[in-house]
Design a protein around this nucleic acid. Structure first.
Lengths: 154, 154
DNA sequence: TACAATCATTATGGTTGTACAACCATCAGG
DNA sequence: CCTGATGGTTGTACAACCATAATGATTGTA
């Protein structure tokens, strides 16, 4: 799996900047600004359903692909998709060339809810927005590079 | 709640660096490097239990305080703590001066598991560790400031 | 055409997370 | 001592999550 974290932080380095940065990012994202509750309230959907909907709204895909992206198994994906379809947020159509596959696509209403979720999740904290322009520029460059660097396993 | 995210990103600014940074951080933390599965497998505990255990291992506290930190209600906290105690990972003792309160403290084995979880969660991705020292230094300074800035509601 | 492989669904069951109401024990103040 | 407030627990109920096994439909291929 990951590198070699088996040793105590104290013995790691005189000053482990990477560790501090990572811990800080995690604290900000998953502790201070966990918006899951807000999103489920705003959309009336459980959070996995929101994740599924956002994936589908980002572009049509098959059940198989959605299951992979949600890191769940097929049967549970079927369950989630059933619910989204029942609510009129997505549509299932058969794949044009392979009739085993179902292509999933968001309806206008589905896209609307996905947008609501996105607005809540992607809204940067005020403290971040208020950063000096120079700092923000560096963050922008470095984080963007990071995201590009460790590609989604594809 | 949060600020005013009601408008479309397009109408927001010619170049919304803060938004890009925040999205990037979220992608890294909750999509590319979500270690929850790894942690539950390594510890044999569900993720809330791990969160509870880590809180307690960080320093003794009452049920009330733990419930607040986990953002759950008292009854569920009791359930979680019961389980951790049954597994010998924590101990309940009565508060020295207020016998209504139970003070929660981690056992050596509990601290061991908490350490395992921490090592997995706090291990920075290789791409971050491999950043140029100058970039890393800036990130370190800015992120640390950010964490200090938007204080935990206390 | 038969056969293995793939995509999805159905059926089923278990665990986990969450909320609410009612309760007991203890404390602090009059 | 009462009495109200606080800290925890019990009991109950339900929704959400996730896995496993079995089935049906379709594909491509030997």
């Amino acid at each position: 799996m990951t590198a070699s974290p088996a040793h105590d932080a104290a013995s790691d380095a005189p000053s482990d900047a990477a560790g501090r940065v990572w811990r800080g990012m995690r604290v900000l994202v998953v502790e201070r600004h966990d918006r899951r509750r807000a999103v489920t309230e705003a959309t009336g959907l459980s959070f996995v359903r929101v994740k599924a909907l956002r994936r589908i709204a980002a572009g049509p895909m098959s059940m198989r692909e959605l299951a992979a992206r949600l890191a769940t198994d097929k049967p549970y994906t079927t369950l989630v998709v059933d619910d989204l379809e029942r609510r009129g947020l997505i549509e299932r159509t058969v794949h044009p060339t392979d009739r085993r596959q179902r292509m999933l696509a968001a309806t206008p209403e589905g896209r609307r809810l996905a947008r609501i979720a996105r607005d809540i999740l992607d809204d940067p904290p005020a403290t971040l927005r208020d950063l000096p322009a120079a700092d923000l520029a560096v963050l922008d460059r470095v984080i963007t590079a990071l995201v590009d660097a460790d590609e989604p396993a594809r």
